[in-house]
Each structure stands twice: as structure tokens, then as C-alpha cells.
């Protein structure tokens, strides 16, 4: 039932590829691709925006409930 994994090709300079290949020796990474995927996931997640703000009405309604429950003074 397993679907085929979806991948695409990205080109990097051969010398860089070789450096990465050296770097991942004796690590848990089994290929340059898996290392590059790991690093890119880390970078992309760091660059994501800050949390969205709630509307003023929502925020007031929630604060009122939090005060009623004793979470806020």
C-alpha cells in the first residue's frame, strides 16, 4: 500500500558534494542527500515567521475566561 516517495534533484558543485561526503563519514547519515535534507529542514524551520496574533475580541474573550477560572488576576 506504500506510496512512492516523492523526491526531486538539486544540483550542488561536485567539490562541495565530496566535502559533505567526507563530513558524514562515521555519522548516522547514510547519504549526502539525507544530510542535505536534514540541514535544509533545519534552516527552513528556523526562518519561519513568528506566531500569528489573535484578534482583539478573541483575546479579550479568552482573558475574561482565564480570569474567571483563576488563571489570571
Amino acid at each position: 500500500m506504500s506510496e512512492k516517495k516523492k523526491f526531486t534533484t538539486v544540483s550542488i558543485p561536485t567539490p562541495l558534494f565530496k566535502k559533505v561526503e567526507e563530513r558524514i563519514k562515521d555519522t548516522g547519515f547514510t547519504s549526502v542527500s539525507s544530510y542535505v535534507t536534514y540541514v535544509l529542514r533545519e534552516i527552513v524551520s528556523e526562518e519561519e515567521e513568528e506566531a500569528e496574533a489573535f484578534s482583539k475580541e478573541d483575546e479579550e474573550r479568552v482573558k475574561e475566561r482565564l480570569r474567571a477560572l483563576g488563571y489570571l488576576d
Binding site: A51, V62, K63, R65, L69, L72
Partner: peptide, 16 residues
Amino acid sequence: PQYNLKPMETRILFKE
């Protein structure tokens, strides 16, 4: 019910 907060509520609470 007094301990049943939704993520929106905890997020606002932590911010406050």
C-alpha cells in the same frame, strides 16, 4: 472544566 484550556487560551495566558 477549570483545567480544560485550549491552545489559543494557553498561548494568550503565557503571553499575559
